[in-house]
Design a protein around this nucleic acid. Structure first.
Lengths: 215, 215
DNA sequence: AAATATAGTGAACATAAGTACACTTGTCAA
DNA sequence: TTGACAAGTGTACTTATGTTCACTATATTT
């Protein structure tokens, strides 16, 4: 079995993407079927199964509208510089964050960065941040690296997050034990930061990628 | 009634946003309820009704997971842009390299990757490679990372390069002392590779960037 | 004290939506 | 001409999910 899609599968993949853009949630089997005049949900399901098998989407079983997007379709040509009508995603690079301003306020934006949309598996707000310091070197995040951040307000234990502590933006591993939040660096020379209730602390997002430029 | 949200409503709105970021589709009433320990779906529903009334979300009635967003909490600075000529660069991702074939032969290309051209300061051929193994972890290059490679045939001491040794493509630090070439890993558990004259060895390029995707 | 808004419970219900199976059709290569 | 594969039908079934109702509780406002 190859990973190439049939025409029908391509059409359906496109429809799913479009539907999600328009509605904010993925279509049901029957909604897909209606669009393509496939009267049986089973016929549709088998298309989805094929798309899953070929790695284009993920489907949560028994969950309604449980389609999540794994990757866009790209032509595999070994072309170097391209001009096409593909849609790319441009995310802002956040520099110094002025105290009190929202992270994405214009004055905080230093530039922007174009990345492959397939890197951002799920939709949602993203921004990038240039890392200062070496507190995360054991996690492979070095001084000067860019981290790509998926905006969110909560985190799970062990996730690498970007947080605001007082005036400072920091990248650490999140840990919440019995409602005591700590930010764990990944460098023996640094100690965890304990967050007590009176700390000015908020989660900005979860690190979903790291980019390093050499030379 | 004002359009200001109660704390509870804010929490729920944030959760919905986060859930969608993570899963690609919105949560059900019960999934929201589970997170907030609200055992009755009705309790959750009334929160959604409030959010709708205040203009923060839209809910399609009788549709599962039918929550769509009207307003983000952040301004949407992460814009989707249409590529115009020559602005973005698309480079091929090289997968398994068939022995004897040129690195950029079609059969070696697994996909492609769009990156900001400002990342590639120098012009010239580039390709990307998915790293296998952990021989370079001390240089912050982990298993599964993509390295962006600038094609060239020669290297300077200390540069991180991609080379072909026999059939294998490898990422290492280049060292040439008195015409004895060694490839130095960055991991105490590995030993340098000595290249002797009869080795089948060639330099494919220099690593100019590293990209890591988390989750 | 009464009214009002927010927040939640627990159960019952209707329907939306995923899963499964047997059978059909058309195409294409061996 | 057999076989494999993509694509689709129709029905039946199970589960997931939204809707509704009566009732409770706790603040805050009038």
């Amino acid at each position: 079995m190859k990973n190439t899609l049939t025409d029908r599968q391509k059409d359906i993949l496109n429809f799913i993407e479009q539907f999600r853009n328009e509605n904010g949630y993925p279509p049901t089997l029957r909604e897909i079927g209606k669009r393509f005049e496939i009267s049986s949900t089973f016929g549709v399901k088998r298309h989805l199964d094929a798309l899953v098998k070929k790695g284009y989407i993920a489907v949560e079983s028994n969950a309604s509208r449980g389609i999540s997007y794994l990757r866009h379709e790209f032509d595999n040509t070994a072309v170097k510089v391209i001009a096409s009508e593909d849609i790319f995603t441009k995310i802002p690079i956040v520099g110094r964050v002025a105290a009190g301003t929202p992270i994405l306020a214009i004055e905080n934006i230093e530039g922007s960065l174009v990345i492959d949309p397939s890197f951002l598996k799920k939709s949602g707000e993203h921004f990038a941040l240039k890392v200062r310091g070496d507190s995360m070197i054991d996690a492979g995040i070095f001084d000067g690296d860019f981290v790509i951040v998926s905006s969110r307000k909560e985190a799970l234990n062990g996730e690498i997050i970007v947080a605001m502590v007082g005036d400072e933006v920091t990248v650490k591993i999140y840990e919440n034990k019995v409602n005591k939040v700590s930010l764990i660096p990944q460098n023996k020379n640094y100690s965890p930061i304990r967050i007590d209730s009176k700390s000015d602390f908020s989660i900005l997002g979860k690190v979903s990628g790291v980019i390093r430029l050499l030379n």
